[in-house]
Design a protein around this nucleic acid. Structure first.
Lengths: 253, 253
DNA sequence: GCAAAAGTGTTAGACCTACACCCATGC
DNA sequence: GCATGGGTGTAGGTCTAACACTTTTGC
């Protein structure tokens, strides 16, 4: 049994949840999966999917399980990574609940069926949700904003953009992901050079895709590289001193 | 009160701690603060400082409080940021305890006095601790390794290196931080150009420091920039495909 | 003067942006 | 042919690594 040291009341155990920010690119927009809450608190409001961490389960496992429950997708097939923990004592009116947010990225996913404590589920364009606070339940506005900036930043330094594309995919598909998530248009020829020169990012399958119109495109699969070297920097937003932004960068070997 | 939904036993509340990776540069090495544990489990082993999150406290507040308790330093004066949560069910033999690791950076700090549940405290060179697993208690080896890679990466994209320098500092001081943490030697003139051209990174004080030998150096304080634009990339370790590394990048506005 | 660290200048090559241009396909 | 997206080439500017060189101090 757990033995508390010191004054017992000072550190009570805490309920821990995971919340998922599931991004996909569909209809020329970055979209996030939302559920309509079927229980109090925030009954009827839109929120990120999530749930309690169960006994004996790691956070990663809880996130993967919730992902499967909410989308019907095998969690192992999607890119899934921990974002950060959110711990404001008043963030949940039921009591002290800390949540660990996860970022999940995938190619166009089916609309999931509503789960046990959700009345409905839908894909929502991310940009339409930001800007006005209080759109989502709890502190999910903040989590979503953090997740968006993480995703945008990760496109620069990692190969996760490929996680948005169903394999096999074309360079045009990949460029579309960058354009939608960054909200810019990119030069097709320069983009091609960069991604094809980054080693182990793209592996040609030898096949081609024949579009409705235009020249057929070479098809690729994801290579084994996870870091994008050299990085593919957004150039548009370096204006100014960067004083209003804080960056945290993490890398594992 | 907290109302559990579903089968009650499936998601019990969990004890939550914060653990601190406190880095400083001293004696030409990156050093981390360790404490010798004065209680079971792992009595007598070296570990990262940390403690339980108290009722009504955010994780940031808990980290800041622990930092003050362990180092005697006003937590608000140090760079402090959340790294990530660690949640292996078996990571602590006392039971289910999740920890959220924090990274703290500061200029040469005093050796702290041992706290209530620590027999001793010391600074240890980081490189001497890595390589062999099982050096530290719990999963603190893993946390330390993650923190080191985060710190190394952050020097590239942010201005946190200045957090290792007591103000006012010289460009040589700053370069020394980069050299020690990256384990490389940098060209002084090119380094100077990069950091002085990065806007709002360094603010000259107008004063100079007169060393034992050599030309006096201009003194600077940290500017308001938190992102380093353009980044100051490590070039030495880009060899290979990057296949063995995973990157997670996060940015806030 | 000499050693040492600060600081400036220069040059060759890498890289990047913008854009012209060619290619392969459906209709 | 023509429209469309795929894909290649290239000139000009920018950035950077490497290193020669000058400056300012203590001794």
């Amino acid at each position: 049994m757990i033995k508390q040291s010191g004054r017992a009341a000072e550190h009570s155990p805490i309920f821990v949840t995971v919340d998922l920010v599931i991004f996909t690119v569909r209809q020329d927009a970055l979209q996030v999966l939302l559920i309509e809450r079927g229980n109090e608190p925030h009954l009827g409001r839109w929120a990120l999917p999530g749930g309690y961490v169960r006994d004996g389960e790691t956070l990663d496992e809880a996130a993967s399980r919730e992902l499967g429950e909410e989308t019907g997708i095998d969690g192992g097939r999607l890119h899934l990574e921990q974002l950060r923990a959110y711990s404001e004592p008043e963030r949940d009116p039921r009591g002290r609940i800390i949540t660990v947010a996860y970022l999940a990225l995938g190619p166009e996913l089916p609309l999931p069926t509503a789960g046990t404590d959700a009345r409905a589920a839908r894909w929502a364009p991310v940009t339409s949700l930001l800007g006005r606070a209080g759109t989502l339940a709890f502190d999910h506005d903040v989590i979503l904003r953090d997740a968006l900036e993480t995703a945008r930043s990760q496109l620069e330094y990692t190969t996760v953009a490929a996680a948005f594309c169903a394999e096999p995919f074309t360079i045009g598909d990949l460029r579309h992901v960058y354009e939608v998530i960054w909200g810019v248009t990119l030069d097709p020829s320069n983009f091609r050079r960069k991604v094809t020169h980054a080693e182990a990012f793209l592996v040609p399958t030898g096949e081609r895709r024949f579009p409705e119109v235009g020249r057929p495109a070479t098809l690729y699969r994801r290579g084994v590289a996870r870091l994008l070297i050299p990085p593919l920097l957004r150039s548009g937003d370096v204006a100014g001193t960067g004083t209003s932004r804080v960056a945290a960068v993490r890398r594992e070997r």
